[in-house]
């Protein structure tokens, strides 16, 4: 039987509720209705009193989760869309994220952000906000790209003592399938070489891993180019060592992200490589992001707004010219 990415999320939530009495789920429409993406379908019946519908109050939801975490629970918050988590930004970044540093008391809460674009979702149901959260100290930010990672990293996130922003990609929910939920057991904080290569490195995460692999296949067919694809898996912490080891092999770097271009994960990657591994570069380190506009509604505009295998391949061709 095949597991989709959303099945993995569901299984991780189910298993965490089953194995740990401290775990509870809180979010809008997650009870009887099972959540906007059915991540919690049937869980309220299985775990009565531990899967709670929240009012449309993202700030209060995050505050509640933090309070419950301080009292020994393991709250897992579902933001209906990552976009709406901006309402909760204060509770997350100012209240929860600073807490261990200020008081020495950790806040074991997990905030699930259904992230990223799908055709037709438009400006307020498509955003990728991982970089915003990563820029504040005190948070772990994870961005699984595979079914097994979605399962394992969510289970692992819930068990961490620190607040975790869990960015799950909506496009992968039903599009990505795997025969197993069991992965290679890499811990949060370690990147994975998804595809080995020697001519250039693509560093990316979440759904863009799959677009990068497609671009790599195109370039292999086109000229035998062997492109290495690094899946960051977590963007805070970033596994700089694995990125630099890859650049040492290839001499060329392209950082790809689905988020807006100003600053962010790709800028962070390029800056780290430029600072620590300048002597390993044969070409200027490059980045490819979404356009610097709100995310468009129409699928034709949307498809051109974010990086695609074609635009990733074009960026790589530029690098390979050096």
């Amino acid at each position: 039987m095949d597991f989709s990415y959303i099945d993995a999320i569901h299984a991780a939530l189910n298993d965490s509720l089953r194995d740990d009495d401290r775990v509870f789920l809180y979010g809008q429409d997650i009870g009887k209705f099972g959540g906007a993406f059915k991540a919690t379908k049937g869980l309220q019946d299985l775990y009565p009193g531990r899967v709670l519908d929240a009012p449309i109050s993202e700030d209060a939801m995050a505050g509640v989760a933090m309070g419950a975490a301080l009292e020994g629970m393991r709250p897992v918050l579902e933001m209906q869309f990552a976009d709406f988590s901006t309402i909760a930004l204060n509770q997350i970044v100012n209240h929860a994220a600073t807490h261990f540093y200020r008081t020495g008391v950790p806040v074991p809460m997990t905030v699930r952000l259904p992230s990223g674009g799908t055709p037709g979702s438009g400006p307020f149901h498509s955003q990728s906000l991982e970089a915003i959260y990563a820029s504040f100290p005190g948070l772990v930010v994870v961005t699984p790209a595979t079914v097994a990672d979605a399962y394992q990293m969510l289970v692992e996130s819930i068990q961490l003592e620190d607040p975790v922003i869990f960015c799950e990609h909506k496009f992968l929910y039903r599009w990505l399938k795997s025969s197993t939920l069991q992965g290679d057991g890499l811990p949060i904080g370690k990147a994975r070489i998804t595809r080995a290569g020697k001519h250039a490195t693509v560093v990316t995460y979440s759904a863009m891993v799959h677009e990068a692999v497609r671009a790599a296949e195109m370039l292999y067919d086109e000229g035998g180019w062997e492109i290495e694809v690094v899946d960051l898996r977590s963007i805070k912490p970033i596994d700089t060592d694995t990125v630099i080891a890859s650049v040492a092999r290839t001499g060329r770097l392209l950082a790809v992200g689905e988020a807006f271009p100003w600053g962010g994960v790709t800028a962070e990657i390029v800056s780290r490589v430029a600072a620590d591994a300048f002597h390993l570069l044969d070409a200027p380190p490059a980045r490819l992001n979404a356009r610097d506009t709100p995310i468009p509604y129409h699928p034709k505009l949307w498809a051109d707004h974010r990086p695609t295998p074609q635009t990733i391949a074009a960026s790589l061709r530029n690098l390979l010219k050096y």
Binding site: G63, G67, A68, L70, G72, M73, N90, H99
Partner: peptide
């Protein structure tokens, strides 16, 4: 915070949901 007295932040109103969450935890426990 472990003795029932959270450390405030400057952002006003944020303690209301925090206390609510602390009480919800105790209810579940």
């Amino acid at each position: 915070p472990q003795e029932g007295m959270p450390a405030m932040i400057s952002h006003l109103g944020s303690s209301v949901a925090l206390v609510a969450g602390m009480l919800m935890a105790r209810r579940m426990q």
